[in-house]
């Protein structure tokens, strides 16, 4: 038999679908758009609606988990993220940025059981009362994410480490869905993070006006007019809105602001007496 040359192997490509409720569904609209030659799901308003339902369903249990447990789960995510370093690089993310994203995730993971101590505390009221302020998650957060992987991590991690659940509209679909895969394989309960790919201008208004969304992070909205329109729509149910002034440098120390913006301070009073 003649010795034949080994045929070159055909690669198995990844299909980029949405990440909602811990699953990877196509858009209910059946639409896709092309990104670097890949067909990527083009999310619709109904996908946004479904994602909010998933986020709301997941929220009480996620918030109710112990802070220690949330920290463990998020650290596991960082481990998985590190393991996908090569894949993110192949998507065009610089190695240094992947490293920074992993480090950022670890940084936030560690906040899970500390932020309440920093943001809350006992209040010395002038009377025989125990008085304690403690932060609680705001609820379901709609996030219009910035394009970079570090930016994406820098808006998702502070929201979820504090017990919120998120619906993310991603503008860098492959990296975002890959992050979804990381989350799906790292003990983060389904629905805690939901990733929609598509057009922010199409989906974001539905999140901004949704009665069951508690907060809106506009960090990734480039168009100031769209941002103002979204901010105005968010006023309908008095959502908390994060709108960074301009040009955030995600490599800088983020401080605690991104977490405290998505926390509500609850103050409990109780009398003291025998």
């Amino acid at each position: 038999m003649p010795k034949s040359a080994t045929p070159s192997r055909l690669a198995v490509r990844k299909t980029y679908k949405l990440y909602v409720a811990g699953k990877f569904p196509r858009s209910e609209s059946g639409r896709t758009y092309l990104v670097d030659g890949d067909n990527v799901a083009l999310a619709s308003r109904k996908d946004a609606r479904d994602a909010v339902v998933a986020a709301r369903a997941a929220q009480p249990k996620w918030a109710g988990a112990t802070a220690y447990n949330r920290g463990q789960v998020l650290y596991r995510t960082a481990e998985m993220l590190e393991a996908r370093r090569a894949e993110f690089k192949s998507l065009g993310v610089a190695g240094a940025e992947v490293d920074a994203a992993v480090d950022r995730w670890v940084w936030y993971a560690g906040w899970s059981d500390k932020i309440a101590q920093v943001a809350g505390g006992a209040n010395p009221v002038a009377g025989p009362y125990f008085n304690l302020s403690a932060p609680e998650p705001t609820g379901v957060v709609g996030v219009i994410a910035p394009g970079s992987l570090l930016g994406l991590v820098s808006v998702i991690a502070p929201a979820v480490v504090t017990g919120n659940t998120v619906v993310v509209v991603a503008s860098n679909p492959q990296a975002a869905i890959t992050l979804g895969e990381v989350l799906a394989t790292s003990d983060v309960p389904g629905g805690v993070v939901n990733v929609l790919t598509g057009q922010a201008a199409e989906i974001a208004p539905w999140l901004a006006s949704h009665d069951d969304v508690n907060a809106l992070d506009l960090s990734g909205v480039g168009d100031p007019e769209l941002a103002t329109e979204l901010e105005r729509a968010a006023a309908g149910t008095l959502k908390r809105v994060i709108r960074p002034s301009s040009g955030v440098d995600y490599t800088e120390d983020p401080g605690t602001g991104a977490m405290t913006a998505l926390l509500e301070i609850k103050t409990v009073w109780h009398p003291k007496g025998f």
Binding site: Y129, E264, T267
Partner: peptide, 20 residues
């Protein structure tokens, strides 16, 4: 934002007040 247990309508300048 404020939960009063076994009391109600108590206010103090040191105690944060505001809503969800």
């Amino acid at each position: 934002g404020v939960v009063w247990a076994n009391t109600f309508n108590k206010f103090d300048p040191t105690s944060p007040f505001g809503g969800y």
